[in-house]
Design a protein around this nucleic acid. Structure first.
Lengths: 198, 198
DNA sequence: CCGAAATTAGGACATACGTCCTATTTCAGA
DNA sequence: TCTGAAATAGGACGTATGTCCTAATTTCGG
């Protein structure tokens, strides 16, 4: 664990504030206040708001990649890995209930702002998408891998949005259970079809 | 069709702008410009931004209720009605690809702003939720009606979010198809279970 | 046709925010 | 210890925005 530079602190604070309050609704002063540095010092590290946003997206990319690598190392079975993904909804349920999904809400906001970093935010989705695809492919769902990946992503997004709207935690748990059921039946079916080919 | 008052024009313009640009990112000047009236005139009709938001939410509630009533009148079968709901994703695909779901994105934004009208936006979801519940109940899914309603809502939300992120229209059509399949198999199963009770 | 009420116009004002600049402090390397 | 670069502080500036006020114009019942 390397020491946290001021820049790192800024990015960490901005990351959290962008998630909780949204990008546009978060001001320089908000972030500087959270890090307890002056606005001048802030400007020394980031000259524009867009630069901070790009740094935050970069940090999230790294975090996400690390998480995916972690699951890759922890579990032997691709199905277990996919379940790890699905269960983030439960692990982060408290934040999700209040602020929704960090990725989904950011891409949505940037789309409305027509912000240049839209593509960067979408890359966060792509990171999950390709990783999930890989897992489904490892399960023998060669042809449907990307379709299944998008399906899982979409359902997770929907759960996060509605859980946030209704503040309903039971709903999260129920849908997570149903997604795991879907995973079991769908991949079992796909695997048996693959076997028929032999 | 009654004549459109200035107030109606304002609400209509605000409704569209809030959807496309987001609530916070839309200014008084934006709306006044769209309706081509002066800011002073604007202020005569709405004294604060929150008032416009409430009016917009009210208008959306009325629109939504009218749409649901329309489906109720058009279709005899509850399954057809639910399919009408699912297929809004296709009917509105162009807007959804660019701006996401009007209800989901609004509730998400208001949640981050911690805005007083959060509850009002959630009511829009509730309108769909209770209506869907009613349809599922009419299909014989007494016990699971609300669960199914939330499930359909969540999947629609997820599809809208991802379709917007990736600008993918084929994905919308595919997921709509799968949701219709789900509807057919799930309600058939539920109905047969109900029959066993007799 | 008149006068009061409703409506519209356009500017005033305070605040907040992103951006920029300069002065001061910290600190590593010579 | 000296020096120059990195880092920090705090204020300046222009613009945008929400809100408010007053004057002009339109509408419409009597």
């Amino acid at each position: 664990m390397t020491a946290m530079t001021t820049r790192d602190h800024i990015v960490a604070a901005a990351n959290q504030l962008f998630y909780r309050q949204g990008y546009e609704h978060t001001s320089f002063a908000d972030i500087a206040g959270a890090v307890q540095i002056s606005r001048g010092n802030f400007y020394y590290h980031f000259r524009t708001k867009d630069e901070i946003l790009d740094a935050v997206i970069g940090a999230r990319m790294a975090e996400t990649q690390a998480m995916l690598d972690g699951w890759e190392a922890e579990s032997e079975s691709p199905a277990d890995r996919i379940r790890s993904f699905i269960k983030i909804l439960i692990a982060n349920r408290t934040d999700i209930k209040r602020f929704g999904c960090p990725v989904g809400t950011l891409t949505t906001e940037l789309a409305k702002l027509n912000h240049p970093s839209q593509a960067g935010a979408t890359e966060l989705f792509s990171l999950f998408r390709t990783w999930l695809s890989t897992q489904f492919r490892a399960l023998g769902c060669e042809k449907d891998a990307d379709r299944f990946a998008m399906h899982v992503l979409a359902r997770s997004q929907g759960v996060a949005t509605l859980a946030s709207a209704f503040g309903d935690e039971k709903f999260i748990r129920r849908e997570v259970g149903e997604m795991c059921d879907w995973l079991a039946t769908t991949t079992a079916a796909a695997a048996s079809i693959e076997q028929e080919k032999d």
